[in-house]
Amino acid sequence: MRVKREELVQKLESVLPGLATKPIIEQSQCFVFTDEKLVTFNDEVACSIDSPLDIQGAIPAKALLQLLNKLPEEEIEVRVEENELLIRVGKKKTKLRMEEEMTLPIEELEEPTKWRKIPKGLVQAINISLSCAGKDESQFVLTCIHIHPEWVEACDNFQVIRYPLKTGLKKSVLIKRDSLKAIVGLDMTEWSQTDNWTHFRNPLGLTLSCRRYLEDFPDLTKVLAIKGKPMELPKNIKDVVVRAEIFSSENTANDSVMVRMKSGKMEIKGEGPSGWYKEVKSIEYDGPPLAFAIAPKLLVEISSKSTSCQLGDTGLRVDGDGFTYVTCIEKVEEKDGQHSSS
């Protein structure tokens, strides 16, 4: 069969969130073609879309996608020959190993039956909460986004965010941050709840399913109720954060910038293996020196929604457009013109 190369690549790339970075389960690093669907599954996320090829079997994902991206031709010929996928275009020819038997344990994924429109603001709430979820697997609950009937929230023991929103759920669910981040940017318009999964679907027919958990999430209400002295964050700090993020983004496990405040000044610093960048902005602040860390994208988002905040003894609270954010602060002392922890 002859297929459009770019259309095939687009479909393959749409199901990438379901691939495993390590071989956790059988065929979890493969594109699996069934009678009607193209499927990926890594035990936490499953993706499916109408199959672009009339074949059945599992093909190593990395090799297939890399090959297709390096071919310049618009059309390619694809067919199965003796448990291998043959790709031919002009004088170019390749074969990829193909497992005809599907061993991917996709049968544990429940089929959604009732689809509902995703509430307005839900994807935005999830997106803004991602940076606040924890990364320490020993504190599993905090690595999840908490979707409550009345709000979306996240916490990593240093910062908290809550986005009030009628989600339409009857019971709260937890979904791992790394699973949910895949739905951002995919134009998801519908969702469905089954016993163990939350499913999202977009107009192109892509279904992305995230494993859901029912553990209790900490009550953050008291933390979010912190009050303190009103103050204003500097405006137009996006460019500063973008420059600092050049270095902080090198820390893939903990991309954060350090914000230090002292009388009349706010310093934003991003640091990574390649070096660091810092910049000072004027601010109306006359309190003691303090510092806090925050994800750069979250700082940009927060400052774009609201510059008003409250500074308490232990935390900084920002009430933005539809959300409340609180971060722990650390009192610091100055030594030789520099800030240091006290």
Rank of each mutant, 00 (worst) to 15 (best):
L96S: 12
L96E: 12
R97Y: 13
R97E: 15
E99V: 01
E99G: 06
E99P: 01
E100N: 14
E100T: 15
E100P: 07
E101D: 12
E101C: 07
E101V: 14
M102Y: 02
M102R: 15
M102N: 15
T103A: 08
T103K: 15
T103R: 15
L104P: 04
P105G: 01
P105L: 10
I106W: 08
I106L: 10
I106D: 03
E107C: 07
E107S: 11
E107W: 03
E107L: 07
E108K: 14
E108T: 11
E108W: 00
L109H: 03
L109A: 08
L109C: 14
L109P: 02
E110V: 07
E111C: 08
P112M: 13
P112R: 06
T113D: 12
T113C: 05
T113N: 11
K114W: 02
K114G: 05
K114M: 09
K114H: 08
K114C: 05
W115C: 02
W115A: 09
W115M: 09
R116D: 03
R116F: 11
R116S: 14
K117R: 14
K117T: 13
K117L: 07
K117P: 01
I118D: 05
I118E: 08
I118R: 04
I118S: 08
I118W: 06
P119A: 06
K120L: 09
G121E: 15
G121A: 12
G121F: 09
G121I: 11
L122D: 05
V123S: 00
V123E: 00
V123K: 02
V123N: 05
V123I: 15
V123W: 04
V123R: 00
V123L: 14
Q124G: 11
I126L: 15
N127T: 12
N127S: 15
I128G: 04
I128M: 09
I128N: 05
S129E: 04
S129W: 00
S129L: 01
S129A: 15
L130A: 10
L130H: 10
S131E: 09
C132Y: 01
C132Q: 03
A133I: 02
A133M: 05
A133G: 00
A133Q: 07
G134K: 09
G134S: 11
K135W: 00
K135T: 13
K135D: 10
K135S: 13
D136I: 09
D136S: 11
D136N: 14
E137N: 08
E137G: 03
E137D: 14
E137C: 03
S138K: 10
S138Q: 10
S138C: 06
S138L: 08
Q139I: 10
Q139C: 07
Q139D: 12
Q139P: 01
Q139F: 12
F140Y: 15
V141W: 00
V141S: 02
V141F: 06
L142M: 12
L142Q: 06
L142N: 08
T143E: 07
T143S: 03
C144V: 01
C144G: 06
C144F: 03
C144R: 01
I145F: 07
I145S: 08
I145R: 02
I145M: 06
H146S: 13
H146M: 00
H146R: 04
H146E: 04
H146T: 04
I147T: 02
I147Q: 05
H148P: 02
P149S: 13
P149M: 03
P149E: 12
E150A: 07
E150K: 07
W151C: 10
W151V: 02
W151F: 15
V152T: 04
E153P: 00
E153H: 01
